[in-house]
Amino acid sequence: MKSELELRNVQQRFHARGVAAGYITAVDDVSFTLAAQPPQVVSLVGQSGSGKSTIARNVLGLQKPTSGSVLYGGKDIFKLSRAEYDAYRRDVQPVFQDPYAIFNPFYRVDRVLWKAVNKFGLTKSRSKGLALIEESLRAVRLEPENVLGRYPHQLSGGQRQRIMLARVHMLRPSFIIADEPVSMLDAQVRKHFLDILLDFQREHGMTTLFITHDLSTVYYLGGEVMVITKGEIVERGPVSTVMHEPSHPYTKLLLDSIPQPDPDRRWTNRITVDELEDQERADAKAAPAPEAPIL
């Protein structure tokens, strides 16, 4: 049975100095459900500071929400039994933004893959483990001999990010939480990476929560999209609908911000989020939320 991942009225506050309320609200009353079946790509779009990475940390169980709950298979992920926790960890796996910081510089890159083999009990035998690792590296179009035994600084950003995908490939989770996975990759590697994600969806039935600020990658991936600003999801629906008939002013602003590869359609006026905020000030209530938790 494939499980569902559900966020129910999740709110995340962080203590902050110099703010009137003493805290800032990074995620405000967010609810959505990711279904494992049928496998799909759901994009979460918003500018920096809109709370999208915090949602990723909530979903991955790295940050306990202030209120509301994250449910896996109907149960709160912070109250799972041992067996349920193991299933949840196996089933919900991340790809993070920064392909440089994701590796501990002290170790070779193999360690990340071996950790996955050992921690999740994929196999006990070393030779089978190596076979699994090589198979997964090939699945993300990496040559095992080019990456195994290397240190993180000896590989390119694209290679490192694909090793993360190889890790996901080995674990075959139902859900991939991809937090800005392509924002630090160049255009060609980016397409490569997105294609692998789509492959995973088709071949292994993985559902991806794709978090990004870049609408062109959302276009490319298709599926569903949610637009988040200031911690609130303001619009959701199929990519084609949201992109062509945006209903929220913030979505329109985002759409206008996609650079067009056409000199005649270069931006002539400057639109800033601040102006939009001025328009919205009447009903604005939340302070701008930071991307990273302030501790």
Partner: peptide, 26 residues
Amino acid sequence: SRPYVDLARVSKARDLEIITTELLPN
């Protein structure tokens, strides 16, 4: 707060293991 600590956590590493294998060597 480095991402590799987060990665270790989603790989089911416990606090003590993270401290000794991820943080201590650095």
